[in-house]
Design a protein around this nucleic acid. Structure first.
Lengths: 154, 154
DNA sequence: ATATATAAGATATTTTTAGTCTTATATCGA
DNA sequence: TCGATATAAGACTAAAAATATCTTATATAT
């Protein structure tokens, strides 16, 4: 009952890009270092974000990632679900056919309600807001040159 | 981001007991068959429910499990958290020290809110209500003698 | 052309989940 | 009191998912 690390990493990635604003190209390496995400893992996450239309990937020398939309138009929910798929708190929410009585089941109704509530809350949060304030796991921005300590893990 | 099967099984177990009411002894075997849970797995889950003060285990011949409280006093949240521990949707919710800036972090605030909402919703649901209506994964009650088909899986 | 950067998928490792097995203990009833 | 039956408790195994890395290929700037 917990977000995967990949989901968390996706949020950090978009958060970092959002601080640069829509359209600015940022290298994978910079993002990886600044958000404390393993570079190759970030690559996989970025591909999912790209498929979801949230970022664009530029290959080649001086390549990197850029936001396709304005940060205010990107929600926490969109980023999370781009990575882990649609949220479903219990199996019966995502696959009603897994239970044989699902539309009548009282427990099922609770899960549906909780699931809907959760998704709504995550949808209300946009990255214009999320990016500008202090954050747990990103180094300060604009860049404070030359500091080297590890970022936000343990 | 999904309830474990152990959690789901715990709900089914309490649900079945709730239909018998507080204090009625029901054998592990009956519960296992009626809720489609592997008997040895149910034993482990029952121990967790017992530690949480939700059920009582009676050993020996003709042993089994019984509810210690009235079904109306048992919430979905209590049962789930007895099995999987306190719900925390993201690592930073359960272990704020895992991030170095957690009280100021905007993302953290969202997670806290979502987490609290989810727990509140699950706390509103009591087993007096949950047990009496139709359910996905339990055979009908009172017992319809002699039917043998598998129960509620796939 | 070459150096640099990401793409894409194969592979490996670790952790968690799920389930089973074994030995011990408790209780009923003959 | 003894044997049958039921659960306790924890060790053990298997399967699945999460996490991370590696390798080969491709794209782009200079």
């Amino acid at each position: 009952m917990r977000l995967t690390r990949a989901g968390e990493y996706g949020i950090r990635c978009v958060q970092h890009l959002a601080r640069h604003g829509k359209g600015t190209l940022v290298s994978r390496k910079e993002i990886a270092v600044r958000t404390d995400v393993p570079p190759h893992f970030l690559a996989k996450i970025a591909q999912q974000l790209a498929r979801a239309g949230i970022i664009e990937i530029q290959q080649g020398a001086n390549g990197g990632y850029r936001l396709l939309r304005d940060p205010s138009g990107i929600t926490l929910l969109a980023v999370i679900e781009a990575i882990i798929g649609e949220i479903s708190l219990n199996d019966c929410v995502g696959r009603p056919e897994s239970c044989h009585n699902s539309p009548l089941c009282t427990v099922h109704l609770i899960w549906n309600k909780a699931n809907q509530q959760l998704r709504a809350t995550l949808q209300e949060a946009d990255f214009a807001t999320l990016a500008k304030e202090e954050s747990c796991c990103l180094t300060p921005f604009p860049e404070t040159a030359g500091h080297k300590e590890p970022i936000g893990k343990k």
